[in-house]
Design a protein around this nucleic acid. Structure first.
Length: 401
DNA sequence: GTCAATTCACATGAAAGAGACCACGGTCTAGTG
DNA sequence: CTAGACCGTGGTCTCTTTCATGTGAATTGACGA
């Protein structure tokens, strides 16, 4: 066995890798030139430019669907402006914070605490009153005596979880600051997000607005080709792979991130199969794999109660029932709870869990009215047949059934 | 047959509670000089 | 005398429960044709 493994590694190394630089296909990568976003880059640069004269730039609000280049553009412009500022010794600091990161920046307290930490003031992860942390934050940046640009990525997630109070406080902060100033760049995936926040905050937050429209298939192709040059060794892609890949992604609202992921995974699939080229079949496989991984990932990270709810839906579904309703699921769920020793939750909560599972795309749950027979959710599985068994295994395993 | 009222089985909202975390400050304890 | 262990307090955060209110169409039953 040891010898075989030895051989395996040898042959692995002797193989010519398909990838030249895989990083170019990953999320955090900031390419040197960004195609089809010149307009946004120019606008953003124009708005932020006053920072170089130590004047507070307007707050910017960027929105557009996922994978339309918002983050990349923001990072790119930030990098460039920082470079200039450093060269000239201009007191400017740009902080990037992704509000979606769980347990790091998804509540008001944590965002402020995180910012304090970034600015070099240690603040406990919890335990202090929020206004205390605010004070500490104000003092810290006041000491800095700098212009600060705060990039809040996925700001919609933050507001959804923590309310818009934090934005209000942040925008108001400038009046308390004497020596430093803060500008905010908010980035949101949610297009209607601005309509739901307090109009006062809205007006101060989105002094300038940048819209990022989805890429169309041709633009995606350009972007992919650009990255392919960086990421793969020449000639490893079959004809038509890039085209099909961008077509896939364009169908999904022009999401460039997804297109890049698809390409990366196809490369990995082909590599694992010892192929010298990546063809369209690999692309299909990659798509399936991404979807399967996504679902498996979602399910394994769910809390036990959610898993049990899902398991109950599974077992009902397997008995051939077509119309599954909340009440049925809850009955089975309660039985299952007894079986594996969990304390059953109330129906109210299970109803929410079902809604959450629907949001995650694991099941379809549609609210229907059955007239005299009440209102309920009609539930069905949204998992492709090919992964149903795998998921079932995972659930049984995780629940010790 | 038509129409409004009724009714069901939850959905959906709001508020409050429980329990896990965490830091802080005070007190106790054991080790050190 | 001091560092570290140990507690109680006061705060946040997440997950739940409790209580209240909302909802949409099948059903019902009165009414008129």
């Amino acid at each position: 066995m040891a010898k075989e493994l030895d051989k395996f590694f040898e042959s692995y190394l002797s193989k010519k890798p398909l990838f030249k630089n895989k990083k170019a296909l990953q999320d955090q990568f900031t390419p040197e030139n960004i195609s089809h976003r010149d307009e946004q880059i120019e606008q953003m640069a124009g708005i932020l430019a006053p920072a170089l004269r130590s004047e507070k730039p307007s707050n910017i609000f960027c929105y557009g669907k996922t994978g339309t280049g918002k983050t990349v553009v923001a990072r790119y412009v930030a990098d460039q402006i920082m470079e200039t500022a450093e060269k000239r010794g201009i007191p400017l600091e740009i902080v990037y914070l992704n509000c979606k990161m769980k347990r790091v920046a998804d509540t008001e307290y944590r965002v402020i605490a995180q910012l304090c930490n970034i600015f070099g003031k240690a603040v406990p992860a919890t335990g202090l009153p929020t206004d205390e942390v605010y004070k500490s934050f104000v003092n810290t940046i006041e000491e800095k005596n700098k212009l600060i640009i705060l990039v809040l990525d996925e700001i919609d997630q933050l507001v959804e979880k923590a309310g818009d109070g934090i934005l209000y406080n942040l925008t108001r902060l400038n009046s308390e600051l004497k020596r430093s100033q803060i500008s905010i760049i908010g980035i949101s995936n949610d297009l209607v997000f601005v309509d739901n926040i307090d109009p006062r905050i809205k007006s101060s937050l989105s002094e300038e607005e940048l819209v990022f429209p989805p890429y169309n298939a041709l633009q995606l192709q350009d972007i992919l080709k650009e990255r392919v040059k960086l990421a793969f060794r020449p000639g490893v892609l079959e004809e038509g792979v890039v085209e099909k890949c961008s077509a896939y992604a364009a169908r999904e609202h022009g999401d460039a991130r997804r297109a890049l992921e698809l390409l990366r995974v196809s490369g990995e699939v082909a590599e694992r199969k010892n192929k010298l080229k990546i063809d369209i079949k690999h692309l299909d496989e990659a798509e399936e794999k991404i979807e399967r991984d996504r679902i498996v990932d979602i399910i394994t990270t769910q809390p036990k109660q959610s898993q049990l709810t899902l398991h109950s839906i599974f077992s009902l579904n397997f008995n051939g029932n077509k119309g599954l309703f909340t009440g049925d699921v809850y009955d089975i769920y309660k039985n299952n709870c007894n079986k594996c020793g969990l304390k059953p939750l109330t129906q109210r909560r299970v109803s929410d869990i079902i809604a959450e599972l629907d949001m995650l795309g694991v099941i379809n749950a549609k609210v229907i009215s059955k007239g005299r027979y009440g209102r309920t959710r009609e539930i069905s599985l949204a998992i492709p047949d090919s992964s149903v068994n795998e998921v079932k295994e995972i659930l049984l395993d995780s629940l010790n059934l």
